[in-house]
Nucleic acid binder design. Structure first.
Lengths: 332, 332
DNA sequence: CTGTTAGCGCCTTCAT
DNA sequence: ATGAAGGCGCTAACAG
């Protein structure tokens, strides 16, 4: 910057102002400075700027996986929301492991983000402590934690799955099985199973028809294997709800392959409203949650919180409940 | 850090050493320091460290989209490769637009990454200039540019698609159509189309059977619409190759829906070996490129280049050609 | 509109 | 194994 300043015949401070938006600079000197910048191929060092201005210019977001189109959509929503605000998104993948989340939170905080968005409401104690002590706005998404850290943008996975089971019951299905991953690493998956079990009990339907298969995120292939297990173990099942559309799709294709009519022999339903569920033949009944909208809402809320903080204020903790909708399709 | 130092009764320098790996510190003082760190909830400020050490500790990667499992896999591969090296990945999405890529490159460079990975070989002039002047290792992926900036980890999309068409020809298909996106924003898509056209000419098959539909990334739904157009426009087509597995899947499901036997009435092939192609019924013939391996290879190459640079050396530009394989499946 | 002064929080280098 | 001095590149705050 000193080189640029010298070449343009001004001080470094003037260069600094010329490179920001709000700087009050005569068009003439700005022109000279920009010319010098171009000639020298100068690129501002934002790290140094951060150090002195105390604004890192980025926000952090942690998602379980990026291969799930759900979380990729949320990431896109966040990106859209903060676009134009001068903030950049730093993304991390926890791989559905709260221990990995802890490490990520720590390394993110070392870079001093101005706000952070995490997925889910279950964290290690240390993660909680770190986030609470960070002094920046925190948003939990995709869930409704009992004890939120600060802000929440989510929905109840249990309630959504419960609604789906009730919907199937309304269509006349009575022997409804559940297909999901094994471990409790995926807390949203566990919540969905809980919602299923709850609904089954409310409706007094046959219990225990749960197939757990593979570690999350459960794949299409695992859905295919799971449906075979389900049917062979309880031959009277007339419907299967799956922890996600991916496994539902795998199950559906396996039914095709074996000549089991869907929904004639067995109905299938998924979760998430992925494109594959909409496009499959038959199209798959599912629960739609607007993943991108979750991201957008979280991004906007974060922006507001950061704005407030920059002017020494604070906004009260918000709890935004996002809607979910059961979408009946051909598979049931 | 000064607070921690005071509490532990040492100098800040000793604290700094205690928080790194290589620091020579007695176990006793390290213990005292760590205790102070915990009590105060201190988190190292990496920005300040960057400024004085000239090592930002991260690498940048730009991909066209994160919703495509292909690029998500590549991102995962990069992450895996650099894991444990103390480097973090900063990811950006260009949305298939080289103008957006330019803006992203600029804002990434302001954060002084130690290396950068970009997708494709087509960039704006300014992007090229910025990357060349940045003084850090640069890797182009997913393509084989005529004039690489520095390193390359990719494959020829045209050659891969060409091989797929030849494979279909070998199976007896003669009226082969192509389904892809419209704009030339997606240069990999354009290359694939080029490979298709080239193969058609080499094999002296009926030409011109190209349906362009929607802007990239072309969706399942658009694949479904495209296959209808293709068949109605050239009723004698006996095979359709699609720019990606997603559109191929959409096309396949539409065929189901309309009662067109696949491959009896029309064969279908995709590109990319997505899970949905493997799992669909019938399973979809495709070209497999190991997206994650591209990421892993690029990440490892970048690590080597960064290592070299840190010790004032340099490695010669590398050109890693990744293999692709035609995978015959039920759909052809 | 422009310049001066004084750090931001850490690490490099050199000394002990 | 530890400490002291100085500076990384920029910007806040205050002058003019």
């Amino acid at each position: 910057m000193a080189d640029v300043a010298e070449r343009a015949g001004v001080s470094t401070m003037t260069v600094s102002r010329a490179l920001k938006k709000g700087g009050s600079i005569s068009e003439k000197t700005r022109g000279k400075i920009m010319a010098a910048v171009d000639e020298l191929g100068y690129v501002l060092d934002q790290m140094a700027g951060t150090l002195s201005s105390k604004r890192s210019g980025f926000v952090a977001a942690l998602v379980p996986s990026i291969n799930s189109s759900n979380f990729a959509d949320t990431a896109r929503g966040i990106t859209e929301a903060i676009e134009g605000s001068g903030l950049q998104l730093l993304l991390g993948y926890t791989d559905y492991q709260i221990e990995k989340e802890e490490r990520l939170v720590e390394s993110m905080l070392m870079r001093r983000p101005e706000g952070i968005i995490v997925t889910g409401g279950r964290h290690t104690d240390r993660t909680r402590k770190l986030l609470e002590a960070a002094g920046i706005p925190v948003i939990e998404t995709w869930d409704v934690p009992d004890k939120p850290i600060e802000h929440v943008v989510g929905f109840s996975n249990a309630a959504a799955m419960n609604a789906l089971v009730h919907h199937l019951h309304g269509r006349g299905y009575r022997n409804i099985g559940f297909i999901g991953g094994t471990s409790n690493r995926d807390t949203r998956g566990a919540d969905r199973r809980q919602g299923y079990i709850q609904a089954i009990e409310q409706l007094a339907l046959p219990r225990g028809r749960v197939i757990s298969f593979g570690k999350p995120p459960i794949s299409m292939e695992q859905g295919a294997q799971a449906i075979v297990h389900l049917v062979s173990q309880w031959p009277d099942v007339d419907a299967a709800v799956c922890v996600s559309d991916l496994s539902a799709f795998g199950a559906l294709m396996e039914c095709h392959r074996r000549g089991w009519a869907v929904p004639g022999r067995i109905a299938i339903a998924g979760f998430g409203d992925f494109e594959v569920a909409r496009c499959a033949y038959p199209s798959i009944t599912t629960v739609s949650v607007d993943a991108k909208e979750i991201g957008r809402a979280a991004g906007n809320l974060l922006l507001r919180a950061i704005e407030a903080q920059r002017s020494q204020q604070q906004i009260p903790p918000e709890m935004m409940l996002m809607p979910f909708v059961v979408i009946p399709r051909e598979s049931s």
